[in-house]
Simulated scan of single mutants.
Amino acid sequence: MNNHNHFKIYKPYGMLSQFASNSTQQKRKRFLGELGNFPEGTMPIGRLDEKSEGLLLLTTDGKLSDYINSSGIEKEYYALVDGAITQEKIEELQKGVEIGFDGKKYQTKPCKVFKLESEPDFPERSKKIRDARHGPVSWVSLTITEGKFRQVRKMTSAVGFPTLRLVRVRVGNIAINNMKNEEVRPINIPSTL
């Protein structure tokens, strides 16, 4: 049997979800390879865009990566949105909203959404974000089973509450818990994610 390595990391704001790049436009960017010496063949499972942070899984198992990306496994995000979000807007998000994707309109699938009662305890972000002194903000949890490009940001914007900060907190049964920024932990990924 092939032994594979799996890791969970807290991807910081401003880092790309790749190990390196030959692109001259990206030579000043930060990459996952800075976080440690990973075994050959390690790849991210899915992506978090440069401005998103939180849980990113890494593996040396390509089949596992494909399975997690294509099987509708839940991914939970905490989004800090601009404004005091209403229950009506949360219900719109739950039902699915129309977003733009690849130049076409796309209706997101129904998902789980609720407002967080208190601010989550995340590591301080390297780039400051607007806070409640400049008008109301709300933290919401969104759990989706699809992963279109910038989907959560597009969804909150579609209901009039742009995302100011986005943190992925869970993939399947694997949660970020109290990880620190840029922390790397070896993990076992169960087959029943």
Rank of each mutant, 00 (worst) to 15 (best):
I9T: 10
I9W: 09
I9D: 11
Y10Q: 06
G14I: 11
G14C: 08
M15V: 08
M15I: 10
L16A: 02
L16C: 04
Q18L: 15
Q18K: 15
F19C: 13
F19P: 09
F19L: 14
F19T: 12
A20V: 10
S21Y: 08
N22E: 12
N22C: 07
T24W: 03
Q26A: 10
Q26F: 04
Q26G: 06
K27A: 03
R28E: 15
R30P: 03
F31G: 01
L32D: 14
G33D: 11
E34I: 07
L35I: 10
L35G: 07
G36N: 03
G36F: 03
F38P: 02
P39S: 04
P39I: 00
E40P: 15
G41Y: 02
G41T: 07
T42F: 02
T42Q: 07
T42K: 00
T42A: 03
M43K: 14
M43I: 15
P44Y: 04
P44M: 09
P44G: 07
I45R: 01
G46M: 08
R47N: 08
D49I: 15
D49Q: 14
K51Q: 15
S52W: 02
S52Q: 08
E53I: 00
E53A: 03
E53R: 01
E53V: 01
G54A: 06
G54Y: 04
G54Q: 03
L56K: 10
L56V: 14
L57M: 04
L58K: 04
T59W: 00
T59K: 08
D61Y: 09
D61C: 12
G62P: 02
K63H: 05
L64G: 09
L64S: 11
S65I: 01
S65R: 04
D66N: 14
I68Y: 05
N69E: 15
N69A: 10
S70M: 08
G72H: 04
G72C: 06
G72S: 01
I73S: 04
E74G: 07
K75G: 05
K75P: 05
Y78T: 00
Y78A: 01
A79F: 10
A79I: 13
L80R: 12
V81S: 13
V81W: 12
D82R: 14
G83I: 10
G83C: 09
A84H: 01
A84R: 06
I85K: 02
E88M: 00
E88F: 00
E88N: 04
E88L: 05
K89M: 08
K89Q: 11
I90C: 04
I90G: 05
E91Q: 14
E92P: 04
E92C: 03
L93Y: 09
L93P: 09
L93S: 09
K95Y: 00
G96K: 11
V97D: 05
V97K: 02
E98Y: 04
I99L: 05
G100W: 07
G100C: 09
F101M: 13
F101W: 13
K104G: 06
K104D: 11
K105M: 13
Q107P: 00
Q107W: 06
K109C: 03
K109E: 13
C111D: 05
K112I: 14
K112P: 01
K112F: 13
F114M: 11
F114R: 13
K115S: 12
L116D: 10
L116V: 12
E117C: 06
P120Y: 12
P120C: 09
P120F: 10
F122C: 06
